[in-house]
């Protein structure tokens, strides 16, 4: 479903990604691992369309999307939960969701019909629907960021450290929801994660990045977190 081939990207003159090759099949969950600063977030941003690639090919369902602006990619079915969650602080929970529904191409979202399943999935958000995004706790914001990506009915969801700075009970909740959206909705996941246990509980395959390129890949069924830990330790 997602095929990344030979992709490179730069900040100004410094090349931060080179020769990235990565695939995610429909309904699959893949973890992207690596230390801080190796380019994981940049890779996600490049796939989403927020950072320009300067080499290679990105295909989604056989369409070459590398030249498309971010909103077109979102409308093709790529959802994004950014690092730091990216909630609009002055918009209410409901309004945040409504912006997320922009990727339902060409039709006006109905907040009763489109938002209802997400309020079922995240009962916390239903209670907070008229609160401003900026006053929510980190865990609530993370749930909102997930719901906001899901309301656009993505077929591939990119998650950038969804458990960063979040209390354990919410991490479990997020794990449950990610499992649910894979099994119930068949959404594929590409997950950037620091916590290996969390990554292993969700993903079937993994990639490890070092200095802007992919150095190792494997399946979580045959290898344990200990096998990749040396590549990630500081």
């Amino acid at each position: 479903m997602l095929v990344v081939e030979g992709v490179g990207a730069a900040y100004g003159m410094s090349q931060v990604l080179s020769e990235i090759a990565l695939t995610v099949a429909a309904g699959e969950a893949v973890a992207l691992l690596g230390r801080n600063g190796v380019g994981k977030t940049t890779l996600l941003r490049t796939i989403v369309g927020l950072h320009a690639a300067n080499a290679g090919r990105i295909a989604f369902d056989d369409d070459d999307i590398i030249r498309l602006p971010a909103f077109r990619r979102a409308r093709l079915g790529i959802g994004y939960v950014p690092q730091g969650r990216g909630i609009f602080p002055q918009l209410t929970v409901e309004e945040n969701l409504s912006v997320g529904a922009s990727s339902l191409d060409g039709r006006k979202p109905s907040m009763t019909a489109d938002a209802a399943p997400l309020y079922d999935l995240f009962p916390t958000l239903a209670r907070l629907r008229s609160r401003k995004g900026g006053v929510l706790s980190g865990g609530e914001q993370q749930q909102l960021a997930l719901a906001r990506a899901l309301i656009g009915k993505p077929r591939l969801l990119l998650l950038d450290e969804p458990t960063e700075g979040i209390q354990p009970s919410i991490v479990q909740e997020i794990e449950r929801v990610l499992g649910l959206i894979r099994s119930e909705l068949g959404v594929a996941l590409l997950l950037v994660e620091q916590h290996l246990d969390f990554a292993w509980s969700i993903a079937g395959r993994y990639y490890v990045m070092q200095r802007g390129t992919i150095v190792r890949t494997g399946t979580t069924a045959t290898e344990g977190p200990d096998d990749v830990a040396p590549l990630l330790s500081v």
């Binding site: 927020l50 909103f71 979102a74 994004y80 990216g86 609009f88 912006v99 922009s102 990727s103």
Partner: peptide, 14 residues
């Protein structure tokens, strides 16, 4: 309002 607060995220949300 969304673009005003966070243009890239609004873009990535479609």
């Amino acid at each position: 309002r969304a673009v005003h607060e966070n243009r890239p995220i609004a873009d990535a949300l479609g």
